[in-house]
Design a protein around this nucleic acid. Structure first.
Length: 264
DNA sequence: AGCGATGTTCGCCG
DNA sequence: TCGGCGAACATCGC
């Protein structure tokens, strides 16, 4: 689930449920998602304090508590946030949970345990340390900058879009949607694309991610003729009604329409 | 029962 | 050096 639009949804959700609520207890039923942090550190940093603001960069969500730095969340492949008014019982697959003085509870759920929760003193430093490129929706990522970034790539356009050190936020399914709407095959080589085509990809990328983020990544709310709600081989293409096809591109399964998407 | 899955990291290879 | 590839992680669902 969690690519940029989903994490944008989690951010709205965290803002509306958990911000400015004093933390009474912390739970860590699945310790491995903390990596090198410890349950004691989580408790020490957050207990008696409240999260004051959030930030998102790519697929990462950050939430700041006074004198505690930033709580960092990455949702892996199956992670999500779930707030409950009652904190009696944690939801299934809860890896980390924060109880609040008002009786509510925010759970970081992650069935496959691929998500991670940690702390960072400074977000920009964290982004540098983790080698993350500019957020795909960041104002500072202009079309010109996007053209520059793709300028010296050699592999497929799909793997470039998914490379978090180049641009942060796009994963397997949104890269498919972007290339579907841009009319280009996922295995197109970046160095074969014209500058005009790269600019089209940029515009489509911004529109798709902004649109999906407005709906918090809920695929059912996407406009008509988006591929994602029907992203499956052999299903009909939402634009031409031909059959969608599946192909492995840089180790991930790409779904595309052979009729609507062409090689450069 | 077996396979693949919205992510990241690592080691291997050309 | 870069990029592709497969494995590993752990669980669910088709």
């Amino acid at each position: 689930m969690p690519e940029l639009p989903d994490v944008a949804g989690f951010q709205q959700y965290l803002d509306s449920t958990a911000l400015r609520k004093s933390v009474s207890h912390t739970h860590v039923p699945v310790r491995k998602v903390l990596d090198d942090a410890t349950p004691q550190l989580l408790s020490r940093r957050l207990k008696g304090k409240s999260l004051k603001e959030s930030r998102r960069h790519g697929k990462y969500l950050f939430a700041r508590a006074p004198d505690a730095g930033w709580l960092v969340m990455h949702f892996g492949m199956t992670g999500e946030l779930q707030y409950s008014e009652e904190s009696e019982e944690m939801p299934e697959h809860t890896c980390v949970a924060l109880d609040f003085e008002n009786g509510g509870q925010l759970a970081f759920r992650c069935p496959r345990k691929l998500g991670r929760v940690s702390f960072a003193e400074d977000v920009d430093e964290f982004l540098r340390d983790h080698d993350l490129g500019p957020d795909a929706l960041d104002d500072s990522l202009s079309a010109d900058r996007f053209v520059e970034l793709l300028g010296d790539r050699r592999g497929s356009i799909k793997s470039a879009l998914m490379d978090q050190s180049l641009i942060a936020g796009i994963g397997n399914i949104y890269s498919d949607e972007i290339l579907f709407q841009a009319g280009l095959r996922p295995d197109s080589k970046v160095d074969q694309l014209s500058e005009k085509q790269v600019r089209i990809i940029y515009r489509v990328m911004r529109r798709v991610l902004a649109t999906a983020s407005r709906h918090g990544g809920d695929l059912r709310k996407l406009p008509p003729r988006y591929m994602l709600p029907d992203r499956s081989p052999h299903k009909p293409c939402p634009r031409c009604d031909g059959k969608l096809r599946k192909k492995t591109v840089s180790g991930r399964s790409a779904i595309y329409c052979p009729n609507c998407q062409s090689k450069p």
